[in-house]
């Protein structure tokens, strides 16, 4: 096969400086999960350089490039399940793309309006609750929301001094109830990283979630 043909099918580039950029991404995700309800932004200099195949946003791509590898099967929701995404992630991360949500370490949710339940993902066991899926949920808006189908939440729990208020969406109408069920399973459960393309919001299983009206 001529080299030009290889270029034609090769996936798009990943992180330009994997060592330092992975550290930046990780620290942002760590801060987000340690302080649920606070949006932590990835630097524009980082997200601006990432050209991931649709529908992965730069932030979601950065998180997977920084944290996923051959030890972590990735589940793609229906909206994200295409050959380009699969080739991009398996090339850069070396991760296996899995059809089974229950064995995934990471799950990429490109269309949260169809995410109505969380119990299909791995919740870990009572002995090993860490063996659970981390969902990366791409939303259109994060922070102040007004749009149709978005939710406003009141958060309490570890990482939150008193109460935090945050909105995002649009998401499935059943997601808030699913998040409450997820909290009720503690210490089992899944953890969510919600991103709008630059900002990152952590929703670990330890966070208590109530819906607020508009």
């Amino acid at each position: 096969m001529p080299v030009e043909a290889l270029f034609a099918i090769s996936p798009r580039p990943g992180l330009a400086d994997p060592v330092m950029q992975s550290q930046t991404v990780f620290r942002t995700v760590m801060a987000a999960l340690a302080e649920p309800g606070t949006i932590h932004a990835l630097p524009e200099t980082l997200t601006g350089t990432i050209d991931a195949p649709a529908p992965i946003t730069p932030a979601a791509a950065a998180i997977l490039l920084a944290l996923a590898d051959y030890e972590t099967p990735i589940f793609l929701d229906e909206a994200a399940r295409n050959a380009d995404v699969g080739a991009f992630l398996s090339f850069h991360c070396g991760s296996r793309i899995t059809d089974s949500a229950g064995e995934a370490s990471f799950a990429l949710i490109a269309d949260p309006t169809s995410l109505d339940r969380l119990d299909a993902f791995a919740p870990g066991t009572l002995d090993y609750p860490d063996r659970s899926t981390t969902l990366i949920v791409q939303v259109a808006e994060l922070g102040d929301v007004s749009g149709e189908g978005s939710v406003r939440l009141r958060l309490t729990g570890p990482g939150i001094a008193d109460t935090a208020r945050i909105g995002f969406g649009p998401v499935n109408a059943g997601l808030v109830a699913a998040l409450a069920d997820n909290r009720a399973r503690f210490p089992q459960g899944v953890d969510l990283i919600v991103t709008d393309g630059a900002g990152i919001l952590g929703l670990p299983r330890s966070t208590r979630i109530e819906e607020e009206g508009f």
């Binding site: 990780f26 999960l33 330890s206």
Partner: peptide
């Protein structure tokens, strides 16, 4: 580092575990 970072994230999500 990735392996340890993933462990840290789960540790934060399950305080004390």
């Amino acid at each position: 580092k990735r392996m340890i970072r993933r462990a840290i994230l789960k540790a934060i999500a399950i305080p004390g575990y």
